[in-house]
């Protein structure tokens, strides 16, 4: 059976050409493999700059991968022809992070929502179009009376609803949500999250949900993949990840979530180094420099994701082993 999204051994390196000297190469995604299952929400969690958004861009075909496989419904995205690519748009849609900049300020809601239909020549009949737009607005919690208004007349949450409606206009099967609530204030976040959850259920959507907020991920996601410096360091069903994190980075992130009940613990061993040694970076554990469990072996051992439990993969050779030992000792 083909899954909605399958990414295998994806590499993406940005190259800045320089007139003199060597071209600057910045590897952003390193050997990323992911699977988004049907009617699941896969959360992609990681700190800023770890490559989450680049992954989305590659999946959406905005950026070309350096190497690797990006399959949507069994079709490899980077090799699609223009017309196949356009068809793919109706399957795969996206909600962006910033609802302030992702809506054309010179278009009113009617134009914004009609655009995807015009592009794909859908619902051309006037009555049908009208009914469809109404239905779409109702689905995202807006009303027909707001059709003639412009984006600047709406609040952030309402704008994000418009963005969601726009993405849903093509009736996609897969939705990529690139930090859709991080630009909104907390009270509005909950409304948008509820909306996404509801839509996922009513439309049987599969969703790739990018976030840096664990609370948000826990609320919405079935599976979670944790990224660090362009790699997936751990991947597990959501509840499993929260109750039994196996990678030191996941553990550190989870305990870094501020809580009013528990005092904060020191979770990172060292400071983040801005640029790691390029040679070592390419294959050893990227987190070793900040890891409190770091062993000398971490500097030499190759980095690899390994199954530690069913559906649970982790890229650390030290911590699962240690946990396992301490458990067996008790």
């Amino acid at each position: 059976m083909t899954v909605p999204v399958r990414i295998e051994h994806l590499f993406k390196t940005y190259t800045r050409r320089r007139l003199l000297g060597k071209n600057l190469e910045k590897p952003v995604l390193k050997d990323v493999s992911l699977t988004l299952e049907d009617n699941h929400v896969l959360g992609l969690v990681g700190e800023s700059g770890c490559g989450k958004s680049t992954l989305c861009k590659v999946l959406l075909g905005i950026e070309k991968p350096t190497s690797g496989l990006v399959e949507v419904n069994g079709q490899n995205v980077p090799t699609l022809s223009k017309s196949e690519f356009k068809k793919l748009r109706r399957v795969l849609q996206v909600v962006y992070q910033d609802p302030y900049s992702s809506l054309d300020p010179r278009m009113n809601v009617r134009q914004l929502l009609s655009e995807p239909l015009d592009i794909h020549r859908l619902k051309k009949d006037k009555q049908e179009r009208k009914a469809f737009l109404k239905e779409l607005l109702t689905a995202v919690g807006l009303s027909e009376s707001q059709l003639e208004r412009y984006p600047h007349e709406f609040s952030g949450g309402q704008r994000q609803r418009i963005c969601i409606a726009r993405a849903l206009a093509l009736n996609p099967q897969i939705l990529v949500a690139d930090e859709p609530v991080s630009a909104l204030d907390v009270s509005v976040q909950a409304q948008i999250l509820n909306l996404l959850k509801e839509i996922k259920k009513s439309r049987r959507l599969s969703m790739l949900f990018v976030t840096h907020d664990f609370a948000v991920a826990r609320f919405l996601c079935d599976d979670i993949a944790v990224m660090y410096r362009g790699r997936i360091v751990e991947r597990a069903p959501a509840e499993e990840l929260f109750t039994n994190p196996q990678h030191p980075y996941t553990e550190a992130l989870l305990s870094a979530v501020p809580s009013v009940h528990a005092p904060r613990r020191a979770v990172f061993a060292g400071q983040e180094t801005p640029e790691e040694h390029p040679e070592r970076e390419s294959w050893a554990c990227p987190f070793a420099a900040r890891c409190r469990y770091a062993q000398p072996a971490c500097q030499t051992q190759p980095f690899a994701l390994q199954e530690v439990a069913p559906r649970h993969a982790c890229a650390c050779g030290v911590l699962p082993f240690k946990n396992h030992k301490s458990k067996s000792a008790v």
């Binding site: 959406l60 905005i62 748009r89 962006y96 900049s101 592009i119 963005c163």
Partner: peptide, 14 residues
């Protein structure tokens, strides 16, 4: 470079 231009492209606009 604005997001809404990228957004239009991801909707399939040429």
């Amino acid at each position: 470079q604005r997001d809404y231009v990228t957004a239009a492209r991801t909707l399939g606009a040429r």
